[in-house]
Structure formats: C-alpha cells, structure tokens
Design a protein around this nucleic acid. Structure first.
Length: 155
DNA sequence: GCCAACGTTGGC
DNA sequence: GCCAACGTTGGC
C-alpha cells in the first residue's frame, strides 16, 4: 500500500523549482527523530506534498515521489556540513534519508491560509497547533484534496 | 524581528 | 529521571 506524506522545505534552501531542475535529490539534513522515523517508513512509489515553509506565503507547492527508501545520510559525517552530527559514527549512524524525485509543480501555490480553511484538511498534522515536524504522514483524502486545490483555480 | 511551541542538553 | 536553560521552527 502506497503511503502519502508531506515534506516541508524552506524554498530559500531547497524549493520545488530546485527539485524540478535536479530531477531528484537525497532528502538529507533532517535532524529530528520523529521526522527521521517517518523518512525510514517511506517506500519507492510513495508520493508527498512538497510544502514551502518560512516562505511568503507558505503553502503547498507541488508533488514529489519517493524513488528509493532511506539510506544513511552522508551529511552527518561531514564536519564541513551544517548538518554534521559529532555523535554519529559510521558504525552507528543516526540519520537516514530517502531519494526523492520531482513529480509535478502545482499550477498555483496553495497558501497555508487556504489549507486551514478547507473542511477536509481540518485534521491534517501540518495544521495542528505547534506542529513543527518537517515530515508528516497524510491520511484519508488529504493528499488528493491538496492536489486538487493545486491543480485548480482558486474558488 | 517577535514569540509561542517544541525538542534537546546537561547538571544534579 | 527531573527540569531549567537553551536552541530551533516557522507563522506572522
């Protein structure tokens, strides 16, 4: 069974356009255990909403597809990297990242405010108070609902 | 830039 | 194991 996810990224760092240009990318740099556990659950063929956080406006920007399940995140071993983790060792890596491919960019960015207003997205993890997780599962028809919004004109 | 809501760290 | 201090996230 294919699962659906939501991946947050700051567009100043890595945007849907960057993913489109590269075609695919390791989803590295996640340094939160709960988010990591979700990354490790991802399977090839799973799809994810690509969400722009810390943007103006923040919102859903497109769709990504998981190309390969999570493997060891190489940035944790690199002292030059901002994601370096001195407590991680080759024998006991802490962080893992899947390979993520570009699927599509929405015809319009669906702003956070509009996601909040949508009846069917009421229980979405992203919208819960204080939710800062950068990787969350989508349930029910949340994924399809957001894709519909991103593929249509604003009402 | 502000600040609420978290997560992590480290002394005890 | 508790918890205060600190750091980060992310909307506004």
């Amino acid at each position: 069974m294919k699962k659906k996810w939501l991946l947050k990224s700051e567009p100043d760092t890595f945007s849907i356009d960057d993913l489109q240009n590269k075609g695919s990318s390791l989803w590295d740099g996640v340094r939160n255990y709960q988010a990591r556990n979700f990354l490790m659950e991802m399977k090839p063929g799973d799809e994810a909403i690509f969400y722009h956080s810390n943007a103006n406006p923040p919102g859903a920007a497109g769709v990504a597809i998981i190309l390969d399940s999570a493997k060891v995140d190489p940035t944790q071993f690199n002292p030059e990297s901002e994601y370096f983790d001195s407590k991680a060792t080759i024998e006991k890596p802490r962080w893992f990242c899947p390979e993520v491919g570009f699927k599509k960019k929405f015809s319009r960015l669906v702003p956070l405010g509009e996601l909040r207003e949508h009846e069917k997205l009421r229980n979405m993890t992203l919208l819960q108070k204080g939710s800062r997780l950068s990787v969350t599962p989508l349930v029910g028809d949340e994924f399809a609902t957001i894709v519909d919004l991103g593929s249509s004109k604003k009402n």
